[in-house]
Simulated assay, not measured.
Amino acid sequence: MKVANIFATLPLRGNYEVIADYILNRVGACGLAWGAYSQKAVSIATGCNRLGIPVVLGPHSAKYRRLYLSRKEEDDWTVMDGREKKLVNTEEPSPEHLITVVESKERAMVTMAKLCIRKNDTAQGRQLKLTHYIALHKQYMGSLPDDLHLFVRKTTDIPIFFKKEVMAYLEKVGWKEKPVLTLPTLIGTYPSEVPLDAVVH
């Protein structure tokens, strides 16, 4: 919460919706609840979700039967461009899920790297995040991620170390450039008493 207050100078008092929107769309954070999944862990994971932070859960959490999953390429990834004040379909599932379960620590590391990707990443920031995602996926899964094309907006996003390999993959799947937003927000895409100007700083 302090990130939104310090970097975006957003007021904290009585401003939960805007703070959660800021974190969901612009702060590359991800939670992890591992081990014996107690009610305390459920509360912590839920608290993260309320603030717009995606959470990765261990296999024990399946007994609580609550996941917030997307369907990647089928779902609508339209957000409001806070500067232009128009709806933009980013075609980018970032973050892909709010609560998801994984079966191993290796899969957890890969998933967490992916869930840190946000729509407002700079080219350098996206390069760094994709470097981690690709490196971990290759190390633990043995190949490039099959959804990599969804997270590359422009060629400047491609990590230099993996550029040749990634470019070949993108050509193979018929990748197209996506819009890059500097102020993505969900406010304005659903009925709310919060004005769009509240997120513009």
Rank of each mutant, 00 (worst) to 15 (best):
Q39S: 12
K40V: 09
V42P: 00
S43L: 14
I44D: 14
A45D: 10
G47V: 04
C48Y: 15
N49S: 03
N49G: 15
N49L: 06
I53E: 05
I53G: 03
P54L: 05
P54I: 04
V55W: 02
V56A: 06
L57R: 06
G58L: 07
H60Q: 15
S61I: 10
A62M: 08
K63N: 08
Y64P: 02
R65S: 14
R65Y: 14
R66Q: 15
R66Y: 14
L67C: 10
L67F: 08
L69N: 03
S70D: 00
S70G: 10
K72G: 10
K72I: 01
E73K: 02
E73D: 09
E73V: 00
E73Q: 07
E74C: 02
D75L: 03
D75I: 00
D81E: 12
G82D: 06
R83I: 15
E84W: 02
K85A: 09
K86N: 09
N89C: 10
P93V: 04
P95L: 00
H97Y: 07
H97E: 01
H97C: 00
H97P: 06
L98N: 08
I99L: 14
T100M: 03
T100A: 05
S104C: 10
E106R: 05
R107Q: 11
V110G: 03
V110K: 00
T111S: 06
M112A: 12
L115H: 15
N120F: 13
N120Q: 09
D121E: 11
D121C: 07
D121Q: 09
Q124F: 05
Q127R: 15
K129C: 03
K129P: 10
K129G: 06
K129H: 13
L130M: 11
T131V: 00
A135G: 08
L136R: 02
H137L: 09
M141Y: 05
L144N: 11
P145L: 12
D147L: 08
H149A: 13
L150K: 00
F151D: 01
F151S: 03
V152Y: 04
R153K: 09
T155E: 12
T155N: 07
T156I: 14
I158V: 14
P159W: 08
P159G: 03
I160D: 14
F161R: 11
F162R: 04
F162C: 07
K163A: 08
K163W: 07
K164T: 14
E165W: 01
E165K: 01
V166R: 03
V166W: 02
M167R: 09
Y169F: 15
L170R: 03
W175M: 05
K178D: 07
K178R: 14
P179I: 11
L181G: 01
L181E: 09
T182V: 12
T182C: 02
L183D: 08
L183P: 01
P184A: 05
P184G: 00
